[in-house]
Design a protein around this nucleic acid. Structure first.
Length: 424
DNA sequence: TCTGGGGTCCTAGGACCC
DNA sequence: TCTGGGGTCCTAGGACCC
């Protein structure tokens, strides 16, 4: 039986999420900015039509945005994460085999659905998500993930497809490959695209024709898989359960340059607490922490970047422990006299919570920590993530290191006060 | 004179993704 | 003034071992 995948992708996801609660912005240009309002990371169709590029730095396009009356939003991941979850739950009605690939994309395994009219099924998926959640999606269906991606991309471009494209027949697949530039193939990035073009490979169809030995000579097994997938040979299976992360990183650029150790400590403590929370979520602990700081590479100021790794006596996911060791590491690399732009905490050597090797010389009461963290997680789950904090994380007052979010929308779906506001 | 041929582990760096 | 933040996997090269 030939494999069959659907890729369901939310159109202009972040922009669509913002528009969902602002019906007055229908047909209006919208952009969503990255953390710190640094650059554009999502655009509505109308904003794309104005020539605003993905990743454009805000300071370069701000004038254009204002002149054109574009509606600007700082990113609101709490809102997007919640809507993403709702979309995924809706998709599970169509098959139990769903891989949540990213915040706005899911792969569905339709291998046992070959008897269905796939075009109709795809349209049902699209219509149901619109009806239940109010977000527009596109659906691409084909024999491999790479081809489903390609079908999805073309479904948005073709009037006739109307957001649903099925590529199961060889001649349709080849026609699609011929109108897809090689750099638009999933798995072909900038470097490979440049190399392929120099070798006379311009389209996905050209890449499909390349010889295996040639691909291996100039690329890796990863690229060979991509080429096989273009030929309809499925090499990438569905991942139903996300594998536990091997490294967990929390880092941010600061809203304003930070100079004092105190402010850096507060920021770093928050990132360490975030890492601890992510670890607890996947029921694992980290043995090693790395803390890094850096000044602003783009600024014409004195530069400094450094990092320090600390091995914990016992692998941990306690916010208290991670904050303690992160602070220790930070103190060792902090130097006075610099304008710091960013810091971060990376947790590695991650092991399941269940099989921690206890260290006889370690006097920390891990059982107590575990219970405390459970209590904190329960409270923050109910009352919001700022309801309880470790003292080192600081209070909620405006701090230099806090992200800049000049255009933030409310957390419409996850904050009690917001939900009440809507109902009144 | 001649300087093997497997392994493993680790790290840095590069490629890709959203 | 001002350019995001999180990941994954693979490869090459060095150290070390027998």
């Amino acid at each position: 039986m030939k494999s069959l995948f659907a890729l369901v992708d939310c159109n202009n996801f972040y922009a669509s999420c913002e528009r969902l609660f602002r019906p007055d912005l229908e047909k209006k240009p919208i952009v969503v900015l990255s953390n710190n309002d640094g650059c554009v990371i999502a655009r509505s169709d109308e904003a794309k039509a104005l020539g605003i590029k993905m990743g454009a730095p805000m300071f370069l396009v701000e004038d254009l945005l204002k002149k054109e009356g574009v509606h600007i939003f700082s990113s609101n991941y709490e809102l997007y994460g919640d809507l993403s979850f709702r979309v995924t739950e809706t998709l599970r009605q169509f098959t139990p085999r769903v891989e949540v690939y990213s915040i706005d994309e899911s792969f569905l395994d339709l291998s046992s659905f070959f008897f269905l009219n796939l075009k109709v099924y795809g349209q049902q998926i699209k219509n149901t998500v619109m009806q239940n959640i109010g977000l527009p999606v596109s659906v691409g269906i084909s024999h491999t993930k790479t081809l489903a991606k390609l079908a999805n991309r073309l479904s948005k471009k073709s009037e006739k497809a109307g957001g649903v494209l099925v590529l199961t027949e060889e001649r349709h697949i080849d026609a699609a490959l011929k109108i897809t530039a090689v750099e638009d193939v999933w798995g072909v990035g900038r470097q490979y695209a440049k190399f392929f073009q120099a070798a006379g490979i311009y389209t996905a169809y050209d890449l499909k024709q390349a010889k295996d030995a040639w691909i291996l000579k100039h690329g890796t097994v990863v690229m060979l898989r991509t080429v096989h997938e273009l030929r309809g040979i499925s090499c990438l299976d569905l991942e139903l359960l996300p594998p536990d992360k091997k490294g967990i990183c929390t880092s941010r650029s600061f809203g304003k340059p930070v100079t004092t150790l105190d402010a850096l400590q507060e920021a770093t403590a928050n990132y360490a607490a975030r890492c601890a929370k992510k670890l607890r979520k996947q029921k694992s602990c980290a043995k090693v922490l790395r803390v890094f700081v850096t000044t602003n590479k783009h600024a014409d100021t004195l530069q400094y970047a450094n990092s320090k790794e600390i091995v914990l006596p016992t692998a941990s996911n306690s916010s208290l422990e991670l904050i303690k060791y992160a602070t220790k590491a930070l103190n060792e690399i902090y130097k006075e006299g610099y304008l710091y732009k960013k810091s971060g905490v990376i947790a590695t050597e991650i092991v399941p919570e269940k099989n921690i090797q206890f260290n006889l010389l370690d006097t920390t009461d891990h059982f107590k920590h575990h219970n405390l963290m459970e209590a904190i997680d329960e409270i923050t789950q109910k009352l919001g993530k700022d309801a309880v904090k470790i003292a080192r994380q600081g209070t909620n007052g405006k701090k230099d290191w806090h992200l800049r979010k000049a255009y933030q929308s409310p957390c419409y779906t996850t904050r009690l006060d917001q939900i009440l506001t809507i109902n009144i």
